[in-house]
Amino acid sequence: MNRASTAIDNLGRSVLRNVEEMGRILLLFISVLSWMIRPPLKLRLIFKQMEFVGVKSIFVVVLTGIFTGMVMALQGYHGFRMFSAESLVGSTVALGMTRELGPVLTSLMVTARAGSAMAAELGTMRVTEQIDALSVMAANPVKHLIVPRVIAGVLMVPVLTIVADFVGILGGYFVGVPVLGINSGIFVKNITRYVDLDDIYNGLIKAAIFGLILSLIGCYKGFNTSGGAEGVGKATTEAVVLASISILISDYFLTAIMF
């Protein structure tokens, strides 16, 4: 009896904690929005973050995209061959990339690369009192640190996603046509036939939302770091875990709404 009540107690506490955290992230989002519309925007800081989140993630995103497309083509081929429908491999790869894998894998990669870096960077700034120093010098830390990162996330993840979509389809093509011997004309024709503009655009909207999620959570975790170097490590891990989970869960709901 006692143990049961303790368990319920703990469960309740953890639910409360999570709800509270969600609320804090939402409040942070609102304050980011309110600072975003207050000029002057720190353009130099935004571009610096865009370079970090976007340009420097190209390599890892292209690599992920190409191999995902290749694997999908290979797997799809073995499945479709049973029904003599190998010609559908191209459209499967293209639909899979544009709708789901492009946005999700890109944002997961960016989470691992840039989201974690955001948490670590802001976490370090927090524990070395650099964030306090900003406040003291009448420079709002949300405006200086978080707004550029969130803007960079929202703008860059979709651009990375379109690159991932494209190289993924390209990867599928290189496996499908020369290696597996699917007719190249049919491969391309089926892609253009089954993939809609909406598939691509909805995928990009998803990517923008994921970009928001990963940058916001990365910044939130970093911003609220406490406890020295260990705290920074913890914040980084938590940021990656929470952002990845949030991306996957929100992906389900976004898919349910969009398609």
Partner: peptide
């Protein structure tokens, strides 16, 4: 105010 923080808190 001016503040000198414990670890100087210079922006890296």
């Amino acid at each position: 105010f001016g503040v000198l923080f414990q670890g100087a808190a210079l922006f890296d």
